[in-house]
């Protein structure tokens, strides 16, 4: 398989690698960059666990090839933590509200919600529900996730 050279920025770092043209972006992130916080749940765009940001927008990394990310700015769940090691407001809100149990879907939720909150500082419950409709969680039943998003939005507006 011929390698393709790609250059991209991941969590603020410039990355330059040669990859198989068929390598999925999700596998590139996990296997080549060893950023294993991005999880793979279905590989056909249904579950949302692999959600990352590409050029600021939340996307499914299992539905993109790594070569398509050439020249892009990618952010994964590993970018959320504060420099001093403290959780950011959204991560803290998830923990405070028991918005995770097994935690496998959580990175996808965090990435979906963090971009949502940038555009909606004071969302109502219906908007929050719509925002997370593309992410599946099997443990929590979603109520606590909604609570956590509300708390995170309030923390920002305060």
């Amino acid at each position: 398989m011929d390698g393709v050279k790609i250059n991209l920025k991941v969590n603020g770092q410039d990355i330059s690698r040669e990859v198989d043209a068929r390598l999925l972006l999700s596998d590139f992130i996990r296997e080549n960059l060893l950023l294993t916080g991005t999880h793979i749940g279905c590989e056909h765009g249904v579950c949302g666990a692999c959600t990352i940001h590409v050029n600021g927008d939340p996307v499914r990394s299992c539905l993109m090839l790594a070569v398509q990310a050439d020249g892009c700015e990618v952010k994964t769940v590993e970018s959320l933590i504060q420099e001093n090691g403290d959780l950011n407001h959204l991560q803290q809100a998830f923990s405070d509200n028991h918005a995770l149990q097994c935690g496998f879907c959580t990175p996808g939720f965090l990435m979906t919600v963090s971009s949502f909150l940038e555009e909606n500082s004071n969302p109502c419950e219906a908007e929050i529900r719509k925002c997370i409709s593309g992410n599946l969680c099997r443990c929590t039943g979603y109520s606590n996730i909604i609570k956590a998003v509300k708390q995170a939005a309030q923390t920002v507006s305060n």
Binding site: L63, T112, G134
Partner: peptide
């Protein structure tokens, strides 16, 4: 059409 994450791509 799909979800936001799909519509972004």
């Amino acid at each position: 059409v799909g979800h936001e994450q799909i519509r972004n791509r």
